[in-house]
Design a protein around this nucleic acid. Structure first.
Lengths: 122, 122
DNA sequence: TCGAGCGCTTGAAAAAATCGAGTACCGGCC
DNA sequence: GGCCGGTACTCGATTTTTTCAAGCGCTCGA
């Protein structure tokens, strides 16, 4: 097995996906493109971090930013094929979460859409 | 403001896995149980965060801490079935990383060992 | 005998995320 | 017309998270 590798794609992927909100962002975008604030509300992130994360995700080619009109501001963020491929990861996480997380309740009809962010006490 | 917080397992999973080092820890442990410092070196984390993360991961039932001897300190951390189930997630990430991450872009920190750490510009 | 290693804690510093307000303009309500 | 709330983001200040550095009690290998 290679030991002295200067670049490990797995390590790098983890580092990327582990940044706060990146997975949430991808998840939200799997349902279709969204605008900036729209996205922010969907995942529950603040605008500052969101902008940072979006820039990074665009950088690595996970999503694209499309400006429809400068003023009035109208932008939309959409996943690239690369970002779409992250669906597998999200799916694996989803499966795991449903199977192995505190089974406090599962009768929620609307699991998605995290409006109010919050630290849910289990 | 009736907080209709249905508790979304997917959201919670992401929040958990997104904490720094947690995925790295699980990945390292997939190869077999490790001791505290051993694990720390394997993933490249500092002891403070590591202890924190391990406690949390033990809390949610992803891994178990086994103390073999108290005073020559000897402890080992191993994945539970639940933690082992995260292999799917890691696998998905690995596949994605290999397929979609540019082999020469983005400043990836060193994988596990080698290299002097601490490169972030102020 | 002596230093190195074990597992982990503490307190302070650095890095990252969050809050809150602000920019420049549009569309709807009345 | 006049006012509110929405759009996409940025800047400065605060809070949270992660890291650094050192150390504890003890034991093993050289």
């Amino acid at each position: 097995m290679s030991s002295a590798r200067p670049f490990c794609p797995v390590y790098a992927s983890i580092e990327l996906l582990q940044e706060k909100w990146s997975l949430h962002i991808v998840r939200a975008l799997l349902d279709g493109p969204l605008g900036f604030n729209e996205l922010g509300r969907a995942v529950g992130a603040n605008t500052t971090t969101l902008a940072q994360r979006l820039e990074r995700l665009e950088d690595v080619g996970v999503l694209t930013r499309t400006v429809h009109s400068a003023m009035p501001p109208r932008t939309s963020y959409a996943l690239t094929p690369s970002g779409l491929a992250l669906e597998d990861v999200l799916h694996a996480i989803e499966r795991w979460g449903r199977a192995h997380l505190p089974a406090s309740a599962d009768s929620a009809p609307t699991p998605t859409r995290a409006r109010t962010r919050g630290e849910a006490a289990p």
